[in-house]
Amino acid sequence: MATKTSNSTKSLYQSYIIEEYHLKQEPYYVPVGDEIQLFEAAYAQRIPVIFKGPTGVGKTRFVEYMSWKLGVNLTKVKKGKKSENATQQDNLPLVTIACHEDLTASDLVGRYLLEGDQTVWIDGPLTRAVKVGGICYLDEVVEARKDTTVLIHPLTDHRRMLPVEKRGELLEAADGFLLVLSYNPGYQSALKDLKHSTRQRFVSIEFNPPPREIEAEIVSHEAKIDIDIAMQLAQLGEKIRNLREHGLGEGASTRLLIYAGKLIAAGIEPRRACQVAVNWSVTDDQSLQNSIEEVTASIFE
């Protein structure tokens, strides 16, 4: 979750007010399919989106990329036509909230805090996104408590409203606001599935590990290693994913491959790098580790 402190201090560390955070540089993203067009279309129509897919395939990177891309367009449009709304951000803000088991509705909406001898209302991140009209990205949403759905539902249909119960308010979402959820259908148990009433308020974009060539390109770029090694890493990733049905909860993510690539770039011997960054990260099972070890040994010299 982004930092909660509202007062920004400039000197020692970089700190953003939640709703003001936006990407300044183009994030690196290589499209695998038509996801960019889809998202653009959905955003244009303000249809909420769900990203489905295993960890580390670029869901978060994609939402960052899209917020940047849409933000750039936004800026262009504004500069070209009307510039009356000066308080509006030039870019599209991105509010990312990592959901966890104890994330409650008030964590999203806001709460009263005690300050000296009075209470002060603090807006939650969702409220801020609604107000400012940015993309609110709820990562791993199934982890959150069920009461959060109370908030999600009115925001995601034609109403586009956020009820702020404690203050007796009903907030209308600003124009640029879009709710994006991500979830990983693979590893959550059936208990933690999304309810249909929730799911069916979104369009779903599926993310899967990219094909070997694209993945190699990504790894090569991110880890700054040459494409040959990146190809081998991508090959390893592909092979490990083959084991998904055999006791491996999830295959090696692109992120892990990038880590391995970075270690290699830093001078770690490839097999060792894969061992610590990939093999030991994907599983604790000894026999699986051994098998992956052999696969690694087959691929890397």
Binding site: E238, K239, N242, L243, S287, S291, E294, V295, S298
Partner: peptide
């Protein structure tokens, strides 16, 4: 056999 079996599965994806 266990080790190699998983190895083969990883390689072949079958």
């Amino acid at each position: 056999s266990n080790l190699i079996e998983l190895y083969c599965r990883a390689l072949a994806g079958e």
